[in-house]
């Protein structure tokens, strides 16, 4: 946790102070269900944080709800307000648009709102914003590609589920590659899914006789891409760059696997940071409102050990 906090990049200072209350307060946490690896990790860190904080602060209760779609998430949040009388809401919106209205209503009712990872479509609703740096994620990956490949190097890109997050990452990636002479042969959506990434990579390999590297942009997709490359027996692909720091991939980087020379962080643990800071704000008078952007860091064999969390499912 400390390591994550150390990586925090404070962009805005804050002023609000929360007076300490004696009676029990409830914190609602609403996150998307674990439908892919990263979300699974995020779920894990959220549960861990809730467990730890309930032990630390006897005056705090936590309600954790996972939603498999935006509509379900709206219902979860409405239920929390109506039946649990929450004092604070930590929400990782499934999608920005559908959640903006309901979250605004919660904020208007005087509940503390912490938004994580995906911003709402209207600014100024949340009291606290904790997010990863998506353009930065793409930029760090692009810079690594530019550095590792010679001029004229050819790469293919596996994109995520078509969302703002994915667009911001890809734009950052493309911007970083500009002028490097590295050519993007093709980009296709692998939906942050292993099977889909496997099939898309197979088809890329059929289509292009020479590919120097794959930007899988996510470690679940790295798994699929690596399997496809291995099965095809293609020696031209020098490495696969994933992202988000799945523990198996971090381990392989740490151990010097040439196919996975690096990783880019997008820590699912940011949800824990958000819950922790929100809890702190409720029980103490520490000033916690503002915007926290957790930067994406390049993981290399040298520093990989400190990004390896053996207990996390991701």
């Amino acid at each position: 946790m400390k390591r994550i906090l150390a990586g925090l990049c404070l962009t805005t200072a804050m002023s609000l102070s929360a007076p300490a209350f004696a009676e029990t307060k409830t914190v609602g946490v609403s996150i998307p269900a674990a439908t892919h690896g990263w979300a699974g990790g995020m779920n894990y860190f959220a549960q861990e944080a809730v467990k730890r904080l309930e032990a630390t602060y006897p005056d705090l209760d936590f309600v954790l709800a996972t939603a498999s779609d935006p509509a379900k998430q709206v219902n979860d949040i409405e239920d929390m307000v109506a039946t649990r009388n929450i004092s604070a809401l930590v929400v990782l919106p499934f999608e920005s648009e559908p959640l903006t209205g309901p979250v605004k209503a919660v904020a208007d009712a005087g509940v503390w709102v912490t938004v994580v990872d995906r911003g709402l479509s209207v600014e100024g609703i949340e009291d606290l914003y904790v997010a990863g740096d998506n353009p930065g994620f793409g930029r760090v990956a692009g810079e690594f590609m530019a550095k590792s490949l010679p001029e004229g190097g050819k790469i293919v890109v596996l994109r995520g589920i078509p969302t703002t997050i994915d667009n911001e990452r890809v734009e950052g990636f493309q911007a970083a590659l500009e002028g490097s002479g590295v050519e993007i042969l093709a980009m296709e959506h692998g939906n942050w899914n292993r099977d889909k990434a496997f099939e898309v990579t197979q088809d890329f390999l059929s289509k292009y006789p020479q590919i120097d590297a794959v930007w899988a942009s996510d470690d679940d997709m790295s798994v699929g891409a690596l399997a496809a490359i291995e099965a095809a027996g293609r020696k031209d692909v020098k490495f696969v760059l994933g992202g988000a720091g799945m523990k198996e991939m971090i381990a392989r980087t740490r151990d010097g696997d040439a196919m996975i020379p690096a990783n880019v962080t997008y820590p699912p643990a940011m949800i824990a940071t958000a819950i922790e800071v929100t809890a702190l704000g409720l029980v103490s008078s520490a000033p916690v409102s503002g915007r926290f952007v957790i930067g994406s860091v390049l993981v290399t064999p040298e520093n990989a050990a400190q990004y390896y969390y053996p207990d996390s499912p991701f």
Binding site: A33, A34, T35, H36, G37, G40, R194, F198, D220, A227
Partner: peptide
């Protein structure tokens, strides 16, 4: 094929 199963399988 991939030696894994998850919620998205």
């Amino acid at each position: 094929r991939l030696g894994s199963a998850s919620a998205s399988t």
